[in-house]
């Protein structure tokens, strides 16, 4: 169930004064089961990119393959694709609308034409997967806390049993514990179900902690693609395009500049602590 983009180009408002090439010759492949982070400054093409993954936006040229099938051929089952590649938008809690949480989460599978019992079964499973407390199942989604609303919204996408879960800044506006809760839960989901996860984020620290691979977007192009260590080694280039490396990476570079021979390819607090101790005790 890999997703593959080949030379994808996409232009907004072609022929108008607002014409903008949102994606330029983007090629990439995301294998089944990978946990991928996408970073890039505002307007770099991240959101346009992820909307290509489930066919919500159609490339002007190039091709998108899901499970080796070209999704742009006539008669391709787009509805089926959107069930397999679940997209959770920014501030998804604004899309909650049903009377209670359980019905809201049932909406996706109901739309897929599944019988009522199956919808409810899936909704319950999905809510359990995101760690949503059962006592709130029959509460109005509007009465929940920010973090719980967001869990409910993510469950709504999970209830469609996607093979790929795409999250656009799932932690924006949440407090620190709320951020950790959601990301821990997403990681748990990834580890438990083998689902592919694509995470768009503005937090370099979060991306460094959770993902296996980072794709950096800039001006509609894929600028860097590699493991967090590989990508954050380019911290100067990242700064030039409105991004940064995690703070601990900078600490390591500063230490090295002061003559302490630490390895600078470090992206998390745990790694940094271990590396500093290793060098000081040597």
């Amino acid at each position: 169930m890999s997703i593959k983009l080949e030379h994808v180009n996409y232009v907004y408002g072609a022929g108008t004064a607002y014409e903008k090439q949102a994606l330029r010759d983007v090629s990439l492949e995301i294998p089944q089961g990978q946990f991928v982070g996408i970073i890039g400054h505002t307007g770099s093409g991240k959101s346009t990119l992820i909307q290509h993954l489930n066919g919500l936006v159609k490339a002007d040229s190039g091709a998108v393959y899901f499970n080796r099938e070209n999704i742009y051929v006539d008669g391709y089952d787009m509805k089926g694709l959107r069930g397999q590649v679940g997209l959770v938008f920014q501030y998804p809690e604004y899309q909650l609308f049903e009377e209670d949480v359980l019905s809201d989460v049932c909406f996706g599978p109901k739309n897929q034409g599944l019988p009522k019992e199956e919808c409810e079964k899936r909704a319950r499973e999905a809510l359990e997967l995101v760690g949503f407390p059962e006592k709130y199942y029959h509460q109005s989604p509007f009465e929940l806390s920010g973090g719980q609303k967001r869990r409910a919204a993510i469950a709504g996408v999970l209830a469609m049993k996607p093979k790929v879960l795409v999250l656009d800044e799932p932690t924006a506006g949440l407090d620190p514990a709320g951020r950790d809760d959601i990301l821990d839960q997403v990681k748990y989901l990834h580890d438990q179900t083998g689902m592919t996860v694509v995470l768009v984020s503005h937090s370099m620290e979060d991306v460094a902690r959770y993902v296996q691979r980072i794709i950096v977007m800039n001006k509609g192009e894929k600028m860097l693609d590699g493991t967090p260590k590989e990508v954050f080694a380019h911290y100067k280039e990242l700064e030039a395009v409105g991004l940064a490396a995690p703070q601990v990476t900078y600490v390591m570079h500063d230490l090295k500049a002061r003559g302490i021979r630490v390895e600078t390819m470090v992206t998390t607090v745990e790694e940094a602590a271990a590396e500093i101790l290793r060098v000081l005790k040597a």
Binding site: D175, P176, A177, G178, E205, P246, Q247, V248, V251, V269, E270, A272, A273, I276, L277, L280
Partner: peptide, 20 residues
């Protein structure tokens, strides 16, 4: 209180915890 500290403070704390 569901809050955190800056990552640099966290690293310093981790180093202290490990005896530095």
């Amino acid at each position: 209180y569901r809050l955190d500290v800056p990552q640099v403070t966290m690293l310093a704390e981790e180093l202290r915890r490990r005896g530095l």
